[in-house]
Amino acid sequence: MTSELKARPASPSRGRRLGAFVFLSPGLTYLVVLLLVPLALVLSNTVFQRGRFGGVVYEFTTENFARLMDPLYLGVVGGSLRIAALTTAIALLIGYPTAYAIARLSPRWKTIALVAIVLPFWTNFIIRVYAWIILLSGPGLVNSGMAAIGLGPYELLYNQGAIVTGLLYSYLPLMVLPLYAAIERLDPQLREASANLGASPFTTFRKVTLPLTVPGVLSGCLFVFVPSFGNFVIPEILGGNKSIMVGNLIRDQFLKARDWPFGSTLALALIAVLLVLLMAQAWMARRA
């Protein structure tokens, strides 16, 4: 290739280079200035000190990382992992059979069913969360319904269950879509072959369908886990401020405690967890 380049006159290569420059430089400049530089600022803040009344004092310290190891903050990170994992698991349990059922519909109904899955996503995110206050609160509809059949009232709102419900409601479509794409791509002949060879439907599912849809499962889990893990709006609206997730902690460091360096350190921890998950996903997808 290099010899070919040398052999050719310089101008097409320069033209090519010019083309690359014209197309790539505006977007890349934007990405460098508004993505890489801000991320570098977050990163660099982790080793600086908090100003007494907020802001950043540019003196080196490892204190932020020491604080991150504090059981208090590790506990919040762990709790957020648990809530996000629980949400993801339930989303998978509901999402898989749903995606499976959609994939078996006729083409016309498939489109309608998929649009119906995505449609709630189009109303405002915060309004969707708010709807659950009306459903779950003490005098709310679920409790009224329960009372009608002589049950309750239950404490449904302002706890972790309400947070998981809200996260699940907000991100379930993100689980169903990649799962559907994976299941849809399956060759129905594989299932038939398995059945013809005498495998029970369950065995077919376990040995054929499931392994082949692992990439879809992994993407779906990631799509639900990532926004759940870093969320701060849902814990605030549905959790009654009684439990906080790492997103709340980061928000509070920036907007309340005015401790930007520590807030940045927490954000770095968030990115680190997500990177580990991304790598795990890539690894598992390759094995599958």
Binding site: A40, L41, S44, N45, G51, V57, Y58
Partner: peptide, 15 residues
């Protein structure tokens, strides 16, 4: 470079 920008801006924004 962002690091450098941050460090330079340091003196002025130090509380």
């Amino acid at each position: 470079l962002a690091l450098a920008v941050a460090a330079c801006g340091g003196e002025s924004s130090t509380s």
